[in-house]
Amino acid sequence: MQIFVKTLTGKTITLEVEPSDTIENVKAKIQDKEGIPPDQQRLIFNGKQLEDGRTLSDYNIQKDSTLHLVLR
């Protein structure tokens, strides 16, 4: 499925993911596309910070959902 990740600069990254993917996996995909190390990434969905060990389906993230990427 496709999800979107919006950065603070207003750029939107499109990712191909599975609901069973962990947040860690998603961060690795963002690193592949953008070169941002996962330990600098914080992903936010519906105002909640997403934890590495959880999956997209844990957070009820579905296709065409938009996550927000904050760098630390």
Rank of each mutant, 00 (worst) to 15 (best):
Q41M: 07
P19V: 11
Q31L: 05
L8G: 09
G35Q: 06
N46E: 14
R42V: 08
I36T: 15
M1Q: 08
S20P: 04
Q2I: 07
T22D: 05
L50R: 00
L71I: 06
K63H: 09
V17Y: 14
R54P: 02
P37R: 14
I30Y: 10
D32L: 11
F45K: 03
L50P: 01
K11I: 10
P37M: 13
I61R: 00
L15H: 01
G47K: 09
D58T: 09
M1E: 08
T9G: 07
L50Q: 01
K29P: 00
L67D: 01
T55M: 09
I30M: 05
I36H: 12
I23L: 07
D39K: 15
G10S: 04
Y59K: 01
L56M: 09
P38I: 03
E18H: 06
T66F: 04
Q49D: 08
K48Y: 12
Q49N: 03
I44K: 06
I13Y: 08
M1L: 14
I61D: 00
K11P: 09
Q40D: 08
K27H: 03
M1I: 07
T12D: 14
L69W: 02
T14W: 13
I44V: 13
A28D: 04
A28M: 09
V17M: 08
Q62M: 11
R42W: 15
L69K: 00
D58V: 10
G53V: 13
E18Y: 14
D21F: 06
Q41S: 09
D58A: 05
P37L: 15
T14N: 10
D52A: 05
V70T: 05
H68N: 05
E24S: 14
K11M: 15
I23K: 01
L8M: 09
T12K: 06
G53S: 06
G35S: 06
D21I: 07
Q49V: 08
S65F: 13
L43R: 00
A28I: 14
N25V: 13
T9K: 10
Q31A: 14
R42P: 01
K27N: 02
G47I: 04
D52R: 06
Q31P: 05
E24T: 15
I3Q: 00
E51S: 05
K33Q: 11
G10F: 02
V70S: 04
G10M: 05
E34I: 15
G53N: 08
R72Q: 09
R72F: 02
T66I: 12
S65V: 07
Q2G: 09
K48V: 03
T12L: 06
H68L: 02
T14V: 13
K33D: 15
E24A: 02
L8Y: 05
Q2S: 05
T12W: 10
K29D: 06
K29W: 06
I44H: 12
D52P: 05
R42A: 14
D32P: 02
M1F: 13
T55K: 12
I36V: 12
E18M: 11
I61W: 01
S65R: 02
L8A: 15
T9P: 14
I13K: 02
I61F: 03
H68F: 03
N60M: 13
A28N: 03
E18R: 11
H68K: 02
I30D: 00
E34A: 11
V70E: 07
Q40P: 02
G10Q: 08
E18K: 07
A28G: 07
L71K: 15
G10P: 09
I13F: 15
S57A: 09
D52V: 08
K27R: 07
R72W: 10
E24I: 12
N25L: 11
L69M: 04
I23A: 06
L43F: 12
K11N: 10
I30W: 01
T66Q: 05
T7E: 08
I3L: 05
N60L: 10
F4L: 02
I3M: 11
I61L: 02
I44L: 03
L50T: 10
L43P: 01
I23F: 10
F4A: 13
V26P: 00
D64I: 04
K33T: 05
Q62H: 12
F45A: 03
Q31H: 12
T22M: 09
S20E: 08
N60I: 09
T12M: 15
N46W: 10
L69Q: 02
G47D: 12
D21A: 13
P37H: 10
A28V: 12
V26H: 00
F45G: 08
L43Y: 09
G35H: 02
E51N: 03
K11Y: 09
K48M: 12
G35T: 11
R54T: 11
T14Y: 09
I36P: 05
K48N: 07
T14Q: 08
S57I: 15
T14A: 11
N46Y: 06
N25A: 06
V26G: 00
K27P: 00
T22P: 14
L56D: 00
T7Y: 06
V70Y: 09
S57N: 04
L50M: 09
I44E: 08
